[in-house]
Design a protein around this nucleic acid. Structure first.
Lengths: 187, 187
DNA sequence: ACCGAGTGAGCAATATAGTGCACAAAGAAA
DNA sequence: TTTCTTTGTGCACTATATTGCTCACTCGGT
């Protein structure tokens, strides 16, 4: 007697947008996806309109046909924004004690924490990561020269930097002493 | 005519385990969760047994009552293993240049990167995080005393440590100089 | 104009998710 | 023992997800 097609659950909103977006990305028509997934086209229309309350197994068949993970269908589409913050979040009783939130990222799968050390003159030129990855750097000793998309940035000791790593990038130490930094790789 | 209670979709397997685990973590009985979520106890039994094909909105009501994200209910339960690695992954052309992979975590939602500084004698005692959170610490100056579940661990400069942060924990600086460290909070 | 592909929507039939009740088994505390 | 709590299960009923059909609409191409 209730419900009235309200569907306040935000998950359903996301699903409808995600299915449509990913179906277009796969260049499939509703009919084609219906055949490939075994879910009726009528149901796909309802899903993309957000007017039905899909069951897990049905949505899982759609995910398989789209060749994506189940969780990709329920994630908030705007979950790709990474924010650089740098705000003072806590100060201790003793002058000088403090905690600074450098960054908050909405990760979807993995986090890798690295400790790096580059001697003067040395460099590292990785292959660009896939779309969606980003890196967070915090230098605590020496000075790091970061090249992202042909743009040079010098990060000094105590400084923080964050960038999407799907574009070509490189680390160089052009200073007189070894540079040591933390590298946080996130998706 | 088909289906025969097979439910091959792996998502359903995960859901049943996750709901039960998280319900116990919240110290709720099936009856209590049924009242709080609005989902009938009969249905909760079926979900935890994996013998029904839950709809998104129903599962979302369960997620809200459990105070967890929807995606927490569909993740593979073994996705919670955080590995401490500490392996040399790259060595530069110049002696001393190196990259060490400190840890790799399978994040589900968020990553927070913090820079901390604690003066001698100061301390920080946060409320325990929710089940699933973990923290990664890298000290680059001074020495940090970490207390997790009444167990003290001293982390010296250059050292790395990782622990699940749903248990009570505290940071203290018992050394003679200020301690500075990177704190990576992950779920 | 016509035509075909892609899409949205209405409807009747069916499969099944979801509810409420009643009962049984197990464990813990009196 | 008795009592209470928690959990699993069978059953009948209701609500709704899902299907296959239909028709209508839009947009390009010819």
């Amino acid at each position: 007697m209730h419900k009235e097609n309200s569907q306040r659950a935000s998950v359903l909103q996301h699903v409808s947008q995600n299915v449509r977006r990913l179906r277009h990305a796969a260049e499939l028509s509703q009919t084609a996806l219906a055949e490939k997934s075994g879910v009726s086209r009528r149901m796909l229309v309802a899903i993309e309109a957000g007017e039905k309350n899909v069951s897990l197994s049905t949505l899982d068949r759609v995910a398989e046909a789209l060749d994506v993970a189940f969780s990709d269908l329920i994630q908030a589409p705007d979950a790709r924004d990474h924010s650089r913050i740098n705000e003072l979040a806590w100060a201790g009783e003793i002058e000088g004690s403090k905690a600074v939130l450098l960054a908050k990222a909405t990760a979807r799968r993995e986090v890798e924490l690295w400790e790096w050390r580059l001697e003067p003159g040395d460099r590292y030129c990785p292959d660009p990561d896939l779309e969606g990855w980003s890196e967070q750097l915090f230098v605590f000793e020496g000075s790091l020269t970061l090249v992202v998309d042909d743009v040079e940035t010098i990060i000094a000791a105590g400084e923080f930097f964050m960038f999407p790593s799907h574009q070509p990038h490189a680390y160089r130490n052009e200073g007189p002493v070894a540079v040591r930094f933390i590298r946080n790789v996130v998706i």
